[in-house]
Amino acid sequence: MESIILQLLNGLDKGSAYALIALGLTLIFGTLGVVNFAHGALFMMGAFIAVTLNMLLGISFEVEDPTRTDFLGNVMMVDTPYVVHWFGESFGNFLIDWSVPISVVVAIPVMALIGVAMERGLIRFFYKRPHADQILVTFGLAIVLQEIIKAFYGANPIPTPAPDAFVGSFDVGRILGFDAFAIMYPYWRLVYFFFAAVIIGLVFAFLQFTTFGMVVRAGMADRETVGLLGIDIDKRFVTMFAIAAIVAGLAGVMYTPILSPNYHMGMDFLVLSFVVVVVGGMGSLPGAVAAGFLLGILQSFASMTWIIELIPGINQVVIYLVAIVILLTRPRGLMGRKGVMEE
């Protein structure tokens, strides 16, 4: 029982990441009809915004520390970050410590800008082109983005720690009435899950309760009729693309303490997120979220030792297997509408 709950929890954080990326993919696909292979790159860029901010806050210079001397009796030089110098000891260190959550604030405008630039600069020329062309151009864009990041940050993963307050694990077992220390779950992963839930809730609320969202939903259901009603759906595209970019970016920012970002993390997550979208159903937002969590949890269950011993390698391929079975038996996905993307 303990191990089942533990695997369930382990699946949640990965599932949250899948769900967030798949949500953005579905938003872009549902509104714009574009298959975006560069969406993983947006996730990766978000992670590197956190890395950049962490580095920027850590920039330091040397100051003399009169209280300490080296063995020759000279005053020692101590590295002091500029933020500490400017804002004082406590607030400066607080900023450095909380760099990842602060990055969320920075990432929103930056990702929106990147999203708008991508849509206006490239994607909008491909609305009328065949899906194969869209796949290819966004695939090329993904390579370009990832190589730019590699040129600036190198090929090695860059560890970016979570705030000290969230280091360590949370004893889930004791709350649920099991033995102490039976189920330990890192705080940050819990934070990530709640963060993802909030973001997903916000996106759904935005689509559900605003006029803008209503138009977007109508456009996803039947673009032609919306056009006939005199609404210029094309104008909403930029906003939707920016929102999808923000969602992917935030997913990346918050994921940095869980997985040290490297330049190809976007690609790794993208392939799986596509599978998630397909399983959930192309163009279905609840489907994408549900399938994201479902597959994340499934993957973590498949990583249990006795299952791996039973079927070696199952943890590597379980998601793909599920996707294959779903596509063959229920091609529209779990919650998809019939006939989407069949041509």
Binding site: H131, V271, G313, Y320, L321, L327, P331, M341
Partner: peptide, 21 residues
């Protein structure tokens, strides 16, 4: 059995499966 984008994703999934195996 599928066409269009689904075919691309299926082949991609198979290739990734072969790679990770």
């Amino acid at each position: 059995r599928r066409s269009g984008i689904y075919f691309s994703i299926l082949t991609l999934a198979f290739a990734q499966m072969c790679y990770s195996l």
